[in-house]
């Protein structure tokens, strides 16, 4: 009887082991910034939660912090825990060499997303990032295509020195420098603050200088500028006096496009999880990645108020 019980137990053990190995989960350690950072980050975190879920065969461990040192400690902990893959959106671009080297020594492939890290390319498998300069280029190309006689622009910038600000300012600055009929009526930073954007626009309206374009480097600041236009009775949107441009593609901003109150919104895609998941599946299957470049640029586009559809809002809109 005892022998039989032992046998049964042993068989059970073997059975669970085989079942267990059949459902072998891929463990990933995700180091990211907290969702409260921005609408972008909120969508980014949700995207990773959805893709690296138990249903898709992943066991994800996540850690959120805005501080580099806390992120470094968390990444080191993930390596010690023995995760299969390490996914990182770093708070700062520097200081990661030691941790990434340690991951390499332990045979843990690293993927970067959203933000680059200043380190040797050999330390990570791939980096899936946005090209901010391209976002600016797309917006300026759209603006050129509007074929206006004069471009008198209120340029409201994001926090100076941030990736998004540098990228979105660059293309516009270049275009203004090279064209006579392009003029910046004002170029001010509102540091992503909606109320500050409203004040800047108000000051231009009060000065009675002519302008016909608002180029705001995110949706919130565009909304602030539009509030100032509304109070002064200046029409804006499709076929109106002032063209309104924003970035980030929040759902509420895209709805403004759909109803014709704004003209353009540039996308900044927070959806990097699927690309990384595909790469991981390749590695799991034993294939080599053979990437042309380790830097994979997310496909991004700009939306025009005259062509946007409700389906676009549902697919590409962030938040609610």
């Amino acid at each position: 009887m005892k022998k039989f019980a032992a046998l049964l137990l042993a068989m059970l053990l073997v059975l669970t082991m085989t079942v267990g190995s059949a459902m072998a989960e891929v463990t990933v350690g995700i180091v990211n910034n907290p969702p409260s950072e921005s609408g972008y980050r909120e969508a980014n975190v949700k995207d990773f939660e959805a893709v690296f879920s138990a249903e898709n065969g992943y066991a994800a461990k996540t850690y959120y912090s805005l501080k580099n040192d806390e992120q470094l400690a968390a990444a080191q902990q993930f390596i010690t825990d023995g995760v299969d893959y390490l996914l990182i959106s770093a708070a700062e671009t520097t200081g990661w060499d030691a941790v990434l080297t340690s991951a390499q020594e332990n045979g843990i492939p690293v993927f970067l997303f959203d933000r680059m890290i200043a380190c040797d390319e050999s330390l990570y498998e791939a980096a899936v990032v946005s090209d901010m300069a391209n976002q600016g280029k797309l917006a300026v190309e759209w603006l050129i295509a509007q074929n206006l006689e004069a471009y008198n622009i209120i340029h409201i910038q994001g926090a100076m020195g941030s990736d998004a600000q540098i990228g979105r300012t660059g293309a516009l600055d270049e275009q203004v420098a090279n064209n006579e009929n392009w003029k910046l009526v004002v170029q001010q930073t509102a540091t992503w603050d909606e109320a500050e954007a409203k004040k800047i626009t108000e000051s231009v309206i009060n000065s009675k200088e002519a302008f016909n374009i608002i180029y705001a480097e995110n949706d919130g600041m565009a909304k602030g500028a539009v509030a100032a236009l509304d109070e002064a009775g200046i029409s804006h949107g499709v076929g109106k006096d002032v063209i309104v441009m924003g970035f980030d593609c929040n759902r509420w901003a895209l709805r403004e496009l759909l109803s014709g109150n704004w003209n353009y919104d540039g996308q900044c895609s927070p959806f990097q999880a699927q690309v990384i998941s595909d790469l991981i599946q390749k590695l799991e299957a034993g294939e080599a990645l053979n990437l042309e470049s380790k830097k994979i640029i997310s496909e991004e586009k700009g939306f025009d108020a005259t062509t946007i559809t409700q389906a676009d809002i549902d697919t590409y809109g962030l938040g609610e």
Binding site: S36, W192, D193, E194, A195, E196, K223, W252
Partner: peptide, 16 residues
């Protein structure tokens, strides 16, 4: 007042 001005709240920048 600050929320109503813009019909939106940005927790990080409201009356910063």
């Amino acid at each position: 007042i600050a929320v109503s001005r813009l019909s939106l709240i940005n927790h990080e920048t409201l009356l910063l």
